[in-house]
Design a protein around this nucleic acid. Structure first.
Lengths: 132, 132
DNA sequence: TAACAAACGTTACATTATAACACTATGATA
DNA sequence: TATCATAGTGTTATAATGTAACGTTTGTTA
């Protein structure tokens, strides 16, 4: 049985903030909001982020340099991520689509390269911004 | 007939360097190598990069903060990009796979969001590194 | 309890990217 | 040909993002 990984103090604090946010957070905005809890330096934030990513608790939205909580409950380790990003309001949503992820996991290029992970980001207009 | 966009002096210099490199280049390494040609400031580089991206001449590899020349000759405007990235040697290759791009262009999520662009990055082991 | 790994705290620094301002070149058009 | 709009240039300064290096502390396990 897979042991539920216990998080350290800093990791808990930072995961908590990211989970409560309904938008991706930037590292330095996280830093700012945890300074009252004794986390003073960027490295403390980045180290926790790195661990949380490895555990699949959060993902990095590469094109935005921002961090978002993982929504798919059983995402123990993060190897396959897909997001939709509204270019107007910057809303980011994790896409969980079985067909899409199956398609991408099975994708192989012509060179024979072994794929271990992927990250897909769609950019466009969300339904709210579409109307305006 | 689509007029071939004429590039400005700085844009030509920077595109030239990126095209001749067989790897993605970082903005500041570009800056360093064009300083003898009179381009002294980061902004001069970033402005040219921005324009070249808009024209589809180059792409940004988001997870690496690096820039690579577009290989698909008819890529006038860059809306759909896919790369494979070797996590060992950092070799980056643009993937041009008709089926993949067709699949992704036609992909729609449940929310009804309009997708204008996407960027897909696969991470893994290239054939060379696989052997070692 | 010794040994090890993981996490912590801190200072300093490296890297990546943009703001703001003034100026120049170019082509369209009235 | 004046003048207008647009794109590009050059410069200084600074913002934002991310790491190196060091030593200490904490927790696990043999």
């Amino acid at each position: 049985m897979a042991q539920t990984q216990t998080l350290s103090k800093n990791q808990k604090i930072i995961l908590d903030i990211i989970e409560k946010a309904n938008e991706p957070l930037k590292a330095y905005s996280i830093l700012f909001s945890v300074q009252k809890k004794g986390i003073k330096a960027p490295l403390q934030v980045y180290r926790a982020l790195e661990k949380l990513i490895k555990l699949g608790k959060i993902h990095k939205v590469e094109s935005r340099n921002a961090f978002i909580a993982c929504k798919s409950s059983n995402c123990e380790i993060s190897k396959a991520t897909a997001f939709s990003i509204c270019e107007t309001c910057e809303k980011v949503t994790e896409i969980s689509d079985q067909k899409l992820s199956k398609y991408l996991k099975n994708f192989h290029d012509k060179t024979g390269m072994i794929y271990k992970k992927y990250n897909l980001e769609f950019y466009g207009l969300c339904t709210t911004c579409k109307r305006n």
